[in-house]
């Protein structure tokens, strides 16, 4: 398509060039379809499900609502950039507590939980629920997700 412009995004610590992209593309689309980072998921395209959550300049945001070409200069961390391969404590707790079923909401939730615990190391039950209220899960009813977050909070408190 004609309406393109070359730009670069800093994703997971690396500067990635985006070429040949239509300028109306969301950050979610560019991550998934152009940068080979399909871990962020799209389920609503309007910021009502949280599946596409990434951290941008220290804030957890919906990547579907970021115009990719406007994110030049921002530091973006996706689910793929959380670790080098080993599971984080949050990821392990999600597996152990049965917080994963279909798994479509999971990457967004993992990013949101890490972001919460980075900023609020010992959140109350209500703080956890409020912080995750933008991440819809259709399979679990959230019970196992709360259990996983509680497990991480307890584990970190013991360390």
């Amino acid at each position: 398509m004609s309406e393109t412009q070359i730009y670069s995004l800093r994703v997971n610590g690396k500067l990635r060039e985006v070429t040949d992209a239509w300028l109306g593309e969301s950050l979610l689309y560019v991550l998934r379809e152009r940068l080979g980072l399909p871990g962020s998921k799209g389920a609503c395209e309007q910021g009502e499900c949280g599946s596409c959550t990434v951290v941008m300049d220290g804030a957890a945001v919906c990547s579907c609502l970021v115009l990719a070409a406007s994110a030049v200069g921002a530091d973006i961390t996706t689910i793929e950039g959380l670790t080098d391969g080993a599971l984080t404590d949050v990821q392990q707790a999600f597996i152990d507590e049965g917080a994963v079923q279909c798994g479509f909401c999971t990457p967004g939730l993992i990013v949101a939980v890490h972001h919460l615990l980075d900023n609020t190391p010992k959140p109350s039950e209500m703080e956890v629920k409020e912080a995750l209220s933008g991440n819809i899960c259709r399979c679990t009813g959230y019970g196992r997700i709360f259990a996983a977050v509680t497990r991480v909070i307890d584990q970190r408190a013991q360390q």
Binding site: G47, E48, G50, T53, A59, A60, V61, C62, L65, V66, A112, E130, A131, S133, G134, N135
Partner: peptide, 9 residues
């Protein structure tokens, strides 16, 4: 306003 993610933007 929306979700925490929306309020961050």
């Amino acid at each position: 306003v929306g979700s925490p993610q929306i309020r961050a933007a």
